[in-house]
Design a protein around this nucleic acid. Structure first.
Lengths: 99, 99
DNA sequence: TTGGTGTATCGGGAAATCCCGATGTATCTT
DNA sequence: AAGATACATCGGGATTTCCCGATACACCAA
């Protein structure tokens, strides 16, 4: 994934929203604390909030993961996604220097 | 132009290159100082270096201008483009805070 | 094992993007 | 005015992106 691919991943309103939600999961997914833990947020929760189909959300999360901006953990039948803040920091440094 | 449109504008290798070249025009367009002045670099110079057709480069520059990242000045038959560094600073701040 | 739930992948129609050649417009020169 | 130069716009074929429904896969519960 090069710089262009990262910008492409960020070139979508819904994906930007998802990344924003994952910055503060407790604030954006306050549903009884279920399906929300130290591993992140599961696909279903994100799908519900995003208002997209399950397949679309799954693909978007997969795409974001390929950029390295988020990471996933499988627990039972759930896949939890969370931000990779180190990757965000590296991206910001790159942008600050190269752009 | 919202955040998504700016990321879309940055989602292209050639456009990123053009923005990089315009960071230091003297270094990247050393052709006898001609067609290079305080107003920026003219379309033809950029087109030659980019290896794209004239129409494509014109459209790319127009797109980048719409995002506010570059500005143009018409002088005679030439249109000079230069970076709007203030816009880049605002974008970087936005990215550092929101992303 | 059977059925249910959560996620990933596949196939594809619609829309957007990429980049081109052709053409139009503005400006300069003679 | 006529031709040349620089750029913008138009029309379009090829590719990519968007987002969906259908289907496949993984795991759990009974």
């Amino acid at each position: 994934m090069d710089q262009v691919d990262i910008f492409k991943a960020l070139s979508n309103k819904k994906r930007l929203l998802i990344l924003e939600w994952l910055k503060d999961p407790a604030a954006h997914f306050p549903d009884h604390e279920s399906h929300s833990n130290e591993f992140g947020i599961c696909v279903g929760q994100i799908q519900q909030k995003a208002g997209l189909t399950q397949s679309t959300v799954s693909e978007y999360l997969s795409l974001l993961q390929r950029t390295g901006l988020i990471e996933s953990t499988r627990v039972g039948q759930w896949t939890y996604y969370k931000r990779n803040e180190a990757a965000f920091e590296r991206l910001k440094e790159l942008i600050n220097k190269e752009l």
